[in-house]
Simulated assay, not measured.
Amino acid sequence: MRWLPPESRSRHAIRDHIEANLDPVEDHQEITFLSTCYDFPWDTQRALELALVRVFGIAKSSPLLVRTGEFLERTQKRYDDTVLILSEMLENGYDSERGRAALRRMNQQHRRYTIPNDEYLYTLSTFVFEPVRWNERFGWRPLTGKEKLATYHYWKQVGALMNIRDIPPSYEAFERFNVDFEAEHMRFSEDNRRLAVATRDLMLSWVLPGALRPLGARVVHALFDDRLLDALGLPRPSPALRRLVEGALRARGPVLRAMPRRREPRLLTRKKTRTYPDGYRVEDLGAQ
Rank of each mutant, 00 (worst) to 15 (best):
A231T: 00
Y38P: 01
T36A: 11
A217E: 14
Q108L: 12
R2S: 14
E73N: 15
P169V: 00
V83W: 00
A248T: 09
R54F: 01
P265N: 04
E190S: 14
F188V: 02
R187N: 12
G57R: 04
P142I: 03
V158F: 09
P169K: 07
F33I: 03
T199H: 11
D201E: 10
R252D: 06
F40R: 06
V219F: 08
S35D: 07
L161K: 15
K146S: 11
H28S: 08
G99R: 00
T32I: 03
Q108E: 14
Q288S: 13
Q45T: 12
L34V: 03
N21K: 11
W3S: 04
T269A: 05
L34D: 08
R104Q: 02
D191L: 01
P277M: 13
A198I: 11
Y120K: 10
N107R: 12
A20Q: 13
R194P: 05
T44F: 13
A196T: 06
Y120N: 11
N178D: 14
E136T: 04
T68G: 08
R281D: 12
M106C: 10
S189R: 12
A248G: 12
D118H: 14
L229T: 09
R54N: 12
F224E: 07
H110S: 05
R176T: 14
Y171L: 02
Y38N: 04
D225H: 07
R137Q: 06
